[in-house]
Amino acid sequence: MKDTERTPVGTALSALILDLFSLNNRLLAAGDRLVAKLGLTSARWQVLGTIAAAARPQPVAWLARDMGANRQNVQRIVNDLEMEGLVAFEPNPHHRRAQLVVLTSKGKQTFEAAMRLQAPWINELSEGLRVKDIETTRSVLSALRGKLQGPGDAEE
C-alpha cells in the first residue's frame, strides 16, 4: 500500500473530521445567534465558560491551554471582555506578569443568562439522540484529542 492511500479506518476518520469542521461552523453560528442579545459571541461565551469552570483564577495562557486554543486569540478576547466589564485582572502571586483572569459580577450575570438560554436550546437539539451514542462519540473524540496533544499540552 502506498503511503498516500488511506486505510478504511483512515477514510472513515477523514470523513468524520470533515463533518466535525462543518458541525463546528454551524455550532459557532448557532451560538452567536443564541447569545447575541447579551452582547456575546460564541468565542466570548466559550472564554467566559472556561473562566467560570476553572477551580481557581487562571492566567490567559492556562485558559487557552484548557480550551485547546491559541493564547494570543484568547488574550484578545479576554481584553475585549475586560473592556466590557465582564472580566477583571488580579495579581498572580506566582508570576508577576501573568495576571489572573476573574469574572466580575456583570460577567457572572451575563454567563448565567447565556446558560439559561442554552438549556432549552440544547434540550431541543438533543431530542431523538441517545445518551449511549453521545457517550460513545465523546469517547472517540477524547481518544483523538489525546493523540493530537503535543508533549507540552496538559492532560484533561
Score class of each variant (00 low, 15 high):
residue 95 H to L: 08
residue 74 V to M: 02
residue 23 L to H: 02
residue 73 N to M: 03
residue 32 D to P: 08
residue 19 D to T: 01
residue 115 M to L: 11
residue 156 E to T: 12
residue 30 A to S: 10
residue 23 L to Q: 05
residue 129 L to S: 14
residue 82 E to W: 09
residue 114 A to L: 02
residue 27 L to E: 14
residue 29 A to F: 09
residue 96 R to S: 12
residue 81 L to E: 01
residue 27 L to P: 03
residue 51 I to L: 10
residue 38 L to K: 00
residue 148 L to Q: 07
residue 68 G to R: 06
residue 63 L to N: 04
residue 92 N to F: 00
residue 68 G to H: 07
residue 53 A to D: 13
residue 144 L to F: 01
residue 27 L to D: 10
residue 118 Q to S: 04
residue 124 E to L: 04
residue 70 N to T: 08
residue 74 V to S: 02
residue 123 N to K: 10
residue 17 I to Q: 06
residue 44 R to N: 05
residue 40 L to C: 07
residue 17 I to C: 03
residue 25 N to A: 15
residue 140 V to T: 04
residue 147 K to C: 12
residue 30 A to I: 00
residue 29 A to K: 11
residue 124 E to C: 00
residue 155 E to H: 12
residue 107 G to S: 03
residue 67 M to G: 07
residue 132 K to Q: 13
residue 57 P to K: 04
residue 100 L to A: 06
residue 103 L to C: 01
residue 128 G to S: 09
residue 112 E to F: 11
residue 53 A to G: 12
residue 67 M to N: 08
residue 150 G to V: 10
residue 121 W to E: 08
residue 42 S to M: 10
residue 34 L to E: 03
residue 117 L to P: 05
residue 22 S to R: 06
residue 94 H to A: 09
residue 151 P to C: 02
residue 44 R to C: 03
residue 153 D to M: 08
residue 106 K to D: 14
residue 47 V to I: 11
residue 127 E to D: 08
residue 135 E to G: 09
residue 89 F to T: 04
residue 37 K to S: 13
residue 44 R to V: 02
residue 78 V to W: 03
residue 136 T to D: 12
residue 77 I to A: 06
residue 10 G to K: 01
residue 149 Q to C: 06
residue 121 W to I: 02
residue 147 K to H: 12
residue 13 L to E: 06
residue 65 R to T: 11
residue 133 D to Y: 00
residue 18 L to T: 11
residue 119 A to M: 07
residue 138 R to C: 00
residue 91 P to K: 05
residue 90 E to A: 12
residue 149 Q to M: 13
residue 144 L to W: 00
residue 84 E to F: 05
residue 150 G to A: 14
residue 108 K to H: 11
residue 76 R to V: 04
residue 28 L to W: 03
residue 90 E to W: 07
residue 35 V to S: 02
